[in-house]
Design a protein around this nucleic acid. Structure first.
Length: 273
DNA sequence: TTCCAGGTCGTTT
DNA sequence: AAACGACATGGA
């Protein structure tokens, strides 16, 4: 395995945060499937050990886990907010994973009114049905497919009503189109994504934050809504649009990281209501 | 059995 | 603009 020196990074917190879904812990290692690659990862202190079924290098890993972002600056700024500071303490070292936009789009369409476990199951089934088989470390994995099948095949993946959304959206975009959105301003890229079936304000923010580099995106799901209402609005019910406005004005360009910390620590915040 | 899960869509105030 | 119910599936 190759070794990479890392600072202010927690592989565990990053991979277990629910950003990406194709993660399989086994025998002290994490197997993380990314596109057509299977990464084998383990962290020991400041050393990150990695292996892959294909040739990769440190640059790939540093980009994948946003390791070149100034973590101290981000956490220092956000830490002036006592509530975020508490969240940071719980999951220090968590980083944003730069996912492939196509896989990210499909994954988060599957997340609609589902659970993290449910999304993992959905994405695994899609990969198994349409992706290519990969043998690595004596185990079987599947690449993420470039194209999805027809409605009938998608329905057989147990996707429920999401199959229709996926089918329609898959016929309208591809990876290249999604990558072009990186050149647009945040608001413009978001309005383009929302035109897609099964993609609304929340899922578009996930795609923008987790695969297109927009760190000002603040995905508001039912957990974040509850936490923000509890922490900043005395538990009062606030529409999602107002929560996004609040996050933008309070966290600015670091809103994405603020959301990541809050979401990763969500169990703690909800249980102490 | 009932409730809930990283929401979105179409319809109605 | 905001509120509301339907939507497929599966785990607890």
């Amino acid at each position: 395995m190759k070794a990479l020196n890392v600072r202010n990074f927690s592989l565990k917190h990053t991979l277990e945060s629910g950003q990406a879904f194709r993660i399989h812990p086994k025998d002290g290692y994490y197997y993380f499937t990314v596109g057509n690659k299977v990464l084998k990862l383990k962290q020991d202190g400041n050393e990150l050990y990695y292996d892959c079924n294909k040739g990769i290098n440190d640059v790939f890993i540093r980009n994948l886990f946003s390791l070149d972002e100034d973590y101290c600056s981000i956490t220092g700024t956000l830490g002036s907010d006592p509530f975020i500071a508490d969240a940071i303490k719980n999951t220090y070292g968590i980083r944003i994973i730069n996912q492939d936009p196509w896989e990210c789009l499909v994954s988060y369409i599957c997340s609609s009114n589902s659970s993290v476990m449910g999304v993992k199951r959905s994405v695994d089934r899609i990969s198994k049905m349409f992706g290519k088989r990969i043998l690595f470390d004596g185990m079987e994995f599947h690449s993420f497919p470039e194209r999805l099948g027809n409605m009938g095949e998608l329905k057989s993946c147990g996707l429920g009503f999401r199959a229709r959304h996926l089918s329609e959206t898959a016929s309208q975009v591809n990876r290249e189109k999604l990558i072009l959105l990186k050149q647009q301003p945040y608001a413009e890229a978001k309005s383009q994504l929302i035109k897609l079936k099964g993609v609304g304000p929340k899922i578009s923010d996930c795609i923008l934050l987790y695969s297109l580099g927009f760190r000002q995106a603040f995905p508001v799901d039912r957990w974040i809504k509850r936490i923000v209402q509890h922490a900043y609005f005395r538990g009062k019910s606030i529409p999602d649009s107002k929560i996004r406005e609040f996050a933008s004005s309070r966290f600015g360009d670091h809103a994405g990281y603020a959301q990541l910390f809050l979401y990763a620590a969500r169990k703690k915040f909800i249980t102490l209501q």
